[in-house]
Amino acid sequence: MARLPGSEGDDGGGSESRRTGGNRGESGGRSGRESRGGDGSRGRDGDRIRGRGQNRDGSENANGSGKRIKVSIAEFAVASAGTLTTSGLGSCLGIAVYDPDAGLSSLLHPMLPSRNGDDDRPPARFVDSGIDAVVDALCEAGARESALRAKVTGGAAVVDFGDDDGASIGDRNIAAAREVFDEYGVDLVGEEVGGGCGRTMRVDAATGAVTVERTDGVDTML
């Protein structure tokens, strides 16, 4: 059967991408590597890491810039070309961490602020363990930790639960992200957070440029 890579204009071409953490089983094949806050970020069941460290077709395709990589809730992806995208951000955050020098970006879509040290739970579901996993993955792909920058969006109160104790989940997610980046010493160079609207986020992998579209029609470039 003939294979014609890259014949689909919009999606064609390959660049690095990986995705982890979507689903979990009772025995995640976790790598033994420890990073701050525990790892568990890779090699779990279900969503296997794809094309980790190399391109699927072995080439950095020139028209790879058209490629789009979707990231769902409790997942992240790292790429050097194309667009990382996630939609339906409500109280969840869309977090872009990138190294502009290395031309590497990541997009993380966590739902809750903290994994509270419970390593059995999927790291990318949480802001703290998710950022750890993303920083690891970026550095492994060739980024320098000291060069990393971050942009954050989401954290809205789309459903107004009047009786939440104090801050909403969205507010707590935003506070957690600021705190974790502060601990890492990673500059949070862009934020479009809070409010009551859902958002869609796009990250240009090569540059870390972020576009946020809100459901009330307001678009922001970060």
Binding site: M111, V158, I169
Partner: peptide, 22 residues
């Protein structure tokens, strides 16, 4: 509870609910 009015993407509406349950 008394109802809360929502108008947004399905995923955005469900995320805070699921966040509480998760």
């Amino acid at each position: 509870s008394p109802p809360t009015f929502v108008s947004d993407m399905g995923t955005s509406i469900m995320s805070p609910i699921v966040g509480r349950m998760a």
